[in-house]
């Protein structure tokens, strides 16, 4: 294990609301766990180890002025990992995620949705590694950004696959808001500003479970 993580935290199941003061730690998942990291506003450098047979759902959202996050995820036999990550970048949002599949029968999905505001930048490095001599693994990595920025969006998906017995997919997209959706909402009598807000928030909330969606709605209420 990497020595840079001095703080080892063992998680033995349930729903864990991640503490905003955790900035660097190794989280060891020993039972089925849901981690919520909602609007923490702090740079995080986490190593997450999902032990054999355990399931982890990690829901992450930040409405960030400036944020750098690094996730190093190690997955072992018969484990599952789902990352639902959403963000709004006001100035800078950087995410490095490294998903490593070290065993057999692992199912991993990384799904990221973000909005890059007018003065924002986004940089996402999404790496997935499937170790050699492993079998029946599935790895999916997707990132979509709605861009309003005049600055930059850099999304880099990498898959390093060292076995033939795997299903691995990745995809990234950067696009503008869909004007058909805006027309639809304005044709119901909604002002353009509110229509844009509804579409944007729906876009980032759509990947989240219901309870997390509600928290995000409350955070974005005054946006």
């Amino acid at each position: 294990m990497n020595d840079k993580y001095m703080n080892n935290i063992i998680l033995s199941g349930g729903i864990v609301e991640l503490d905003k003061y955790i900035d660097s730690a190794r989280l060891i998942i020993k039972e089925d766990t849901i981690i919520n990291a909602i609007n923490l506003h702090n740079n995080m450098d986490l190593c997450i180890v999902v032990e054999s047979g355990c399931n982890l759902e990690f829901n992450m959202f930040d409405y960030a002025v400036s944020l750098e996050t690094s996730l190093d995820v190690e997955l072992h036999d018969n484990s599952t990992f789902t990352l639902n990550g959403a963000f709004i970048s006001e100035v800078k949002y950087e995410l490095n995620i490294d998903t490593k599949l070290y065993g057999d029968n692992i199912y991993a999905t990384v799904d990221l949705r973000g909005i890059n505001e007018e003065d924002g930048t986004v940089k996402i490095n999404m790496n997935g590694t499937v170790a050699g001599e492993t079998h029946r693994n599935v790895l999916n990595e997707y990132a979509k950004v709605l861009n309003k920025s005049k600055l930059s969006n850099v999304l880099i998906p990498n898959l390093i696959v060292n076995t033939n017995d795997v299903e691995a997919n990745h995809g990234v997209s950067v696009g503008r808001i869909d004007e058909n959706e805006i027309f639809y909402l304005t044709s119901k009598g909604i002002d353009r500003h509110n229509a844009v807000k509804l579409v944007e928030e729906g876009f980032i909330e759509s990947i989240m479970p219901e309870d997390v969606k509600e928290k995000i709605k409350n955070i974005l209420m005054g946006r």
């Binding site: 959706e181 909402l185 119901k188 909604i190 509804l198 579409v199 928030e201 729906g202 759509s206």
Partner: peptide, 13 residues
């Protein structure tokens, strides 16, 4: 419209 419910839309409308 992904992520936007009828109730939300009608309330804003």
């Amino acid at each position: 419209i992904p992520g936007v419910t009828n109730a939300e839309m009608l309330r804003v409308a």
